[in-house]
Design a protein around this nucleic acid. Structure first.
Length: 309
DNA sequence: AAGACGAAAGTGGTTGA
DNA sequence: TCAACAACTTTCGTCTT
């Protein structure tokens, strides 16, 4: 990547022409600090010369080639030392060498047993790296996820579960813990594991490892959606304000965070004369118009908003 | 013609007996 | 393990702009 100091860049914001574009390593985003536009999301370490606003666009823009699949565990990872004390031509080997081979076999066996866990990790970490990179998650997230996965292995929680689904679950958990908005849908798409599979594995490790995951704050999704909708900073602030108010008020408990974020953005966009249709907002948020209407009606009533749309 | 609205029925997941 | 339940979706008819 570039050699600029962490956080700062030489990029100019395409929206407001400001030079105050910074990298947010936490979220893996490149954003303009004066207007709030996310210029690039899911920043790769390996040089993103394109822009992508969300996972879908990213998939379209990313170069071709099927995702790497680790078909067979252990492929190329296991060495064998046979039991015949011969060299490759079949000739006898000196007793000294034989003793050496014996020791090698012995240790090889021990190491192999000790590393059935390690082997699992090799596969899992490769998968973790692949998925996390596809999602543009930064290093520290990968590290945390790897740590959590190790814990899961140690507790023998993988048995009967696909390694890939546990990996996906761990990533999902860490993202939520760190407040980085990645939906189950996105993770499902890049990992190729069904949403409900990930959800199940996630719930399992969450309870078994007693990981305390706070419920997602809808405000976390605001910048993401707003950028996809090309909505400015003021609208985002407005939406976040609405969410905060709603949170303090009755509650948003039980509601899907994406739906709430979508409704807040919908209202905020109308308040600032940059109105988007329900369908537009619904599409980027991954919910239906009906859900937006429901949330929007609740918000309007609870907050006593007098917005005419 | 497009967007917004809401009713009704269906789906998948959670929860508690 | 099953049934009740809440959130969300799908579908569709109607109203508004």
């Amino acid at each position: 990547m570039s050699k600029t100091a962490p956080g700062s860049t030489t990029t100019k914001c395409p929206e407001c022409k400001s030079k105050r574009v910074v990298r947010d390593y936490e979220k893996g985003e490149l954003l303009c600090s004066s207007c709030g536009l996310i210029i690039a999301e899911n920043i790769h370490d390996m040089g993103p010369e394109w822009r992508a606003f969300d996972a879908e666009q990213k998939e379209k823009k990313a170069r071709g080639g099927a995702p790497i699949k680790y078909m067979r565990p252990n492929k190329g990872l296991v060495t064998e030392i046979d039991q015949y004390n011969r060299d490759i031509r079949g000739g006898k080997i000196s007793p000294k060498k034989q003793a050496q081979l014996y020791r090698m076999r012995k240790w090889h066996k021990r190491v192999s047993i000790a590393t059935s866990m390690e082997r699992n990790l090799v596969i899992a970490l490769a998968e973790l790296d692949r998925v996390a990179s596809s999602l543009g998650l930064p290093e520290n997230i990968k590290e945390s996820a790897a740590l959590l996965y190790r814990k899961a292995v140690k507790e023998e929680l993988i048995r009967g579960r696909l390694i890939e689904s546990v990996v996906a679950a761990v990533i999902y958990a860490i993202c939520r813990l760190q407040g980085i908005p990645r939906t189950l849908d996105e993770i499902s798409r890049v990992s190729g594991i069904e949403k409900k599979e990930i959800g199940r594995a996630y719930r399992f490790i969450k309870t078994e490892l007693k990981v305390d995951v706070p419920l997602t704050d809808p405000a976390q999704y605001v910048p993401k959606f707003a950028t996809a909708l090309r909505l400015g900073g003021e609208v985002q602030e407005e939406a976040v304000k609405l969410i905060k108010k709603a949170l303090r008020k009755g509650l948003i408990s039980g509601r899907g965070p994406t739906g709430v974020a979508a409704a807040a953005l919908y209202i905020a966009s109308a308040m600032h004369g940059e109105k988007k249709t329900q369908k537009e907002v619904a599409d980027v948020a991954g919910v239906t118009e009906v859900t937006i209407r429901n949330r929007y009606r609740e918000l309007k009533k609870e907050l006593g908003l007098k917005v005419n749309l």
